[in-house]
Nucleic acid binder design. Structure first.
Length: 296
DNA sequence: AAGAAGACCAACCGCTGCTGT
DNA sequence: TACAGCAGCGGTTGGTCTTCT
């Protein structure tokens, strides 16, 4: 939103390296260079492109703005839902979250979280960091009660819900909108509960950072128990992306004891398989390192 | 109409982990 | 094994825009 023409770009102490907002001319130079020589070698790229920027700045500009695959514009409701789910699983692992939302950058998701979603969760009485009720007495049961409530008892629900959208003075439209939002959130958390029921420990779902970092190296230890867990976790993440599939999995679980079902693919935990999402357009991008990054 | 406050988001900074030597 | 250089990540900053008073 910065206007390059009016914003004040600065230079560093040696007076050579430019900082601040990018101009269209700089964008052009950067894009041309990358199209010609490809991504990478960021440190030397500024010189090759004829830019007075540091490599880090070039990389950021390309990744977050200039890359052709970057999707601009409003975050769609389904994307928002996915961000919520993934954040619940991964925490502030913005690049991991972004890696599963095609066309969105980690910076964009981080900004959207900080400016919209965290506030939204707070309005819902949910701690955006832990995804648990801010008030211990404020359980999902309250949300369910609220979501099933009629206009007549919404006033009473407002007493237990710290949701400003719901109060006795609200219009019918406002009440219905707030009601729908609560239902949305309730579904979100039911999914999480289902994951627990499927045997994913809360530790894994909280996605302790060290486990995530370790996964790439553990991938080399084929056949290990940890690998099995990683496969299962990856499949679970993928299933979140396709909620219908997840619902299906939920139903099939009762019929196929010990067998997981995702996207119509039946497999045992630990069995080698390639998730359908891994062959999606996103993972076909020419970025092997990034692909590897997301093979949890 | 003008100033203040808040929202938004691009960009920067510091740290971490990976890779090559 | 130790070190250096680099890329990438997440937290934070600060300029601009929008809304409120």
């Amino acid at each position: 939103m910065r206007n390059p023409a009016t914003a004040t770009a600065t230079r560093n102490n040696n007076g050579r390296q430019k900082k601040g907002p990018w101009t269209p001319e700089e964008d052009e130079l950067l894009a041309t260079c990358i199209k010609k020589e490809g991504e990478g070698r960021w440190r030397t790229l500024p010189k090759r492109a004829g830019l007075l920027r540091c490599g880090k700045s070039c990389r950021l500009r390309w990744m977050n703005y200039l890359r052709p695959s970057v999707k601009r514009g409003q975050i769609a409701p389904d994307e928002e839902d996915l961000i919520l789910r993934l954040h619940r699983l991964l925490g502030n692992r913005w690049s991991l979250i972004a890696g599963r939302i095609p066309g969105r950058t980690d910076n964009e998701i981080k900004n959207y979280w900080n400016t919209h979603l965290s506030k939204k969760l707070i309005r819902q009485g949910i701690d955006p960091r832990t995804h648990k009720p801010l008030n211990p007495q404020h359980s999902t049961a309250h949300l369910k009660a609220s979501s099933n409530s009629s206009k007549a008892n919404l006033g009473a629900s407002a007493a237990t819900l710290p949701n400003p959208n719901i109060n006795p003075a609200s219009s019918s439209a406002q009440i219905m909108a707030a009601d729908k939002e609560n239902e949305h959130f309730q579904n979100h958390y039911q999914t999480y509960d289902t994951a627990i029921a499927h045997g994913f420990t809360s530790d894994l779902l909280n996605c302790d950072a060290s486990r995530i970092e370790m996964r790439s190296s553990s991938n080399q230890n084929q056949g290990s128990n940890e690998d099995c867990t990683d496969d299962a976790f990856s499949s679970f993440l993928n299933s979140l992306i396709n909620e219908d599939a997840f619902t299906n999995q939920n139903q099939m679980q009762q019929q196929t004891n010990g067998i997981e079902q995702v996207d119509g693919t039946t497999f045992s935990l630990g069995q080698g398989w390639e998730s359908p999402i891994m062959s999606s357009n996103y993972f076909n991008q020419n970025d092997p390192k990034r692909i590897n990054d997301h093979l949890i």
